[in-house]
Write a protein that binds this DNA or RNA. Structure first.
Lengths: 202, 202
DNA sequence: ACTACAGTGGACTCCACAGTCCATTCCAAG
DNA sequence: CTTGGAATGGACTGTGGAGTCCACTGTAGT
């Protein structure tokens, strides 16, 4: 079916995914219905099932993919070039700003609980996102090593894993309490400690 | 109504909450129904609505409170007496073990997405949990300061906030990917960096 | 022992919402 | 201009599951 889509079809499909994403963010996954999505995207039920034959779950998964892609895009160009301490700090500011703006909606998080974290499809999307995210952080650390700002002996994997966890935790606390202080503290100390770990090894 | 419960009534109510918690953990919040809970707890629908007049949401909230209490209990007695570096490491091991055992079920997390993170009741429960959790960590840091293992000048709030975020992030990555490496790295480096930050200030 | 109310059983209502189906329109290729 | 398949409209169905209701039972207090 995927190859048979005409230009018009592809456009409609995109409209559905983007509109659904918006609806899900506003109403929350739990209470968003196909009718909401139809209303928002100006489509009929048959269209929904035409483009997503397996129904709601397939659509939710498509939205999850869409949202996952946005996550890293929103951190660019900073995330892609963490080659100086200033770059790290600019990136940190972008992340904090982005998630403060997002407020208490977690497009991705809610999606999993609906589809089921354990669903292979859903799990693959998050795992892939986490992998790429961590890899970007690791690349940043490595470029600091390459320019001598960090010693070569640093455990890049552990450091990038911890940083990723710090972000995730900060965000999830922001989601549930509405406070961004934890995200701030986690990122600030994460970067500070990265720096200090480097100095300690010299 | 709360004060009018007889001993029998209180027992039934408890049975419902505990049984519901088990069902929710097994089936996931999204697919758990009142009928599942009735079957599991050997109760009838009228009992459910007798003890939770506002229906499913009220019951879910009660379960959330129940689960929130377990979280910190499960980390005792370690969390309550973080007065040496060995104690911190024992606590870390308990946390990792607990969440590895829990696997990919997040009793609390899923509850919010169902009830709605923004619901005042739900938010209050998590906020309170986070507050108490962080306070325990802060108390641990302070007791290290008191015995001279950490300098007095350390920013206790920021450190404890970052540690809490590290845990939350590690757990949420464990939930979505099934891997505990991030939780491990976050906790290990969190404790290591705490120690190093102390040494750097001397 | 009586009585009033907590506790319990379970049938019944009601409806929101996913998913189906067929009729109709659009459009590209020949 | 015709024809086949993609794209669309929208009425219809089926059902899972929350919440209601009333009848019955157990029991604590007087």
């Amino acid at each position: 079916m995927r190859g048979e889509l005409t230009a018009k079809g592809r456009a409609t499909r995109r409209r559905i995914v983007e509109g659904a994403a918006a609806v899900l963010r506003e109403r929350g996954v739990a209470s968003a219905t196909l009718d909401d999505i139809m209303a928002r995207t100006g489509t009929s039920k048959s269209q929904l099932f035409h483009y997503f034959p397996a129904g709601k779950d397939e659509l939710l998964l498509a939205v999850a993919r869409f949202e996952a892609d946005r996550v890293l895009e929103d951190q660019q160009p900073y995330l892609g070039c963490l080659d100086s301490w200033e770059a790290w700090e600019r990136w940190r500011d972008v992340v904090i700003e982005r998630y403060e703006a997002q407020g208490d909606e977690c497009p991705l998080g809610s999606l999993f609980f609906q589809v089921g974290r354990s669903t292979p499809g859903a799990r693959a999307i998050v795992s892939e996102l986490m992998r790429r995210w961590q890899e970007s952080l690791a690349a940043g650390i490595r470029s600091l090593q390459a320019t001598g700002r960090l010693p070569a002996g640093l455990d890049v994997d552990a450091r990038s894993a911890a940083l990723l966890a710090a972000i995730q935790g900060g965000v999830s606390i922001l989601l549930s309490t509405g406070q961004s202080t934890h995200l701030r503290a986690a990122l600030d100390l994460g970067i500070t400690d990265l720096r200090r770990a480097g100095e300690a090894m010299r």
